[in-house]
Design a protein around this nucleic acid. Sequence first.
DNA 1: CCATCTTTGTGCACGCGTTCACAAAGACAT
DNA 2: ATGTCTTTGTGAACGCGTGCACAAAGATGG
Lengths: 255, 255
Amino acid sequence: MATGRTHRPATRSRGIPEATVARLPLYLRALTALSERSVPTVSSEELAAAAGVNSAKLRKDFSYLGSYGTRGVGYDVEYLVYQISRELGLTQDWPVVIVGIGNLGAALANYGGFASRGFRVAALIDADPAMAGKPVAGIPVQHSDDLEKIIQDNGVSIGVIATPAGAAQPVCDRLVAAGVTSILNFAPTVLTVPDGVDVRKVDLSIELQILAFHEQRKAGEEHPDGAAPPAAAREESDESADQGPDGDVPAVMPA
Amino acid sequence: MATGRTHRPATRSRGIPEATVARLPLYLRALTALSERSVPTVSSEELAAAAGVNSAKLRKDFSYLGSYGTRGVGYDVEYLVYQISRELGLTQDWPVVIVGIGNLGAALANYGGFASRGFRVAALIDADPAMAGKPVAGIPVQHSDDLEKIIQDNGVSIGVIATPAGAAQPVCDRLVAAGVTSILNFAPTVLTVPDGVDVRKVDLSIELQILAFHEQRKAGEEHPDGAAPPAAAREESDESADQGPDGDVPAVMPA
DNA sequence: CCATCTTTGTGCACGCGTTCACAAAGACAT
DNA sequence: ATGTCTTTGTGAACGCGTGCACAAAGATGG
């Protein structure tokens, strides 16, 4: 759930509902774990439990992909892994570039989950000349002057933006102009892109604020009168929210 | 987007729909930017554009909070900033702990958006004894043996998990037992928690897979016959998806 | 070959979220 | 004070997503 969702409204892609697509990676992860334990088949009930969803929902999700189960038995794990991988497009190689190699960009570059799912870090790009040539996660950082060339030479269609907020839109524009059609945005900004380009947004600050809302609600239920939390955060401040301009601060990066 | 959403089904909290709560931080960010530019009032149309949403949706969202606008004029920026901050619980101090100080945990610790929204990093916790005492982002890392004491001494109710997947559930259990009731999970695992505990999930791998799905779809529309992408990723592989066990790999961490 | 038992696949109903479209409300000028 | 003009706030319709509940399908045993 991280999630914020800057996305097309509800253009269900080829009959598969967006909500289902979002769950397929979840199923895939659970199935991969079963596959590693050499489990041959799994029932919708078991798999649903492993993925943390309702079994009816899971069966309906799979029904959009086709009838891959056997009644009275369940689903063949290996076959399902293959079908979902194929549906998600993970049976092909996806070169990605990461733009903005700060704390977060470096963490992403080191992410192990990339390669194991068909994603390959084709290049790391940063605007700081001092970073150029320096290896991060074994890959030398390249300067953003060469962004267009890098995109084209590597046939990159997926870009990850981990820059400060102020740089995000310009970088996005350049990525799109160079041919990128899917963007994962970690910068705390609303990106404007032309039709046909997909943007997904990951925003730590938003997730925390949503948690705070529910946390406050829980606290408020115990003390119906108002603000004071149970045993947690005391020192109720009046004006702590509008102190700092963080609009120009990267998603995860030294302030 | 990003987000995966492990969350309560649809228990709308005190009449404010979950979908609205998820958008409030977006509005708040746009309003903060306006406030810094000393813009006194803003119309629903303008603000909606800045936040990247429909203006009708924005007005309906605000209507759940109360009637804070003036017809014919718009909304008072400062007043709205305050109201949304209060609604989200950002007018109080929220101490948070980050567990798992790897690449990602360190990046989160350095995140500038924390303090500016009322969140305060109360402690960094890691299981590696070699990390203990070492300062990250100016805060000394503490060993996980002291987790319970740290939580209680600081009155922490929000925890961030950035550990490898295998460690996530045990850490989660300990956090919950110590009194944490909201968890932001970066580990690629489904966390099981008792009722009353909120979990939000951020999963990079899932976001990328969703993008890959749409990317493949776009490519497939141009070449109706099948798999070959337009100019991007060539070298179509058959078996690249089920190679690596990444079920035990942290969200963002060296494999 | 038939009966039984398990598990899938899905028709259906319900509720949340989104969007349209408009009446009500207030600002502002005359 | 009255009329006009702008913008909010919301009633209503629609569509997507979810979950129930059950019939159909196949496995398995006698």
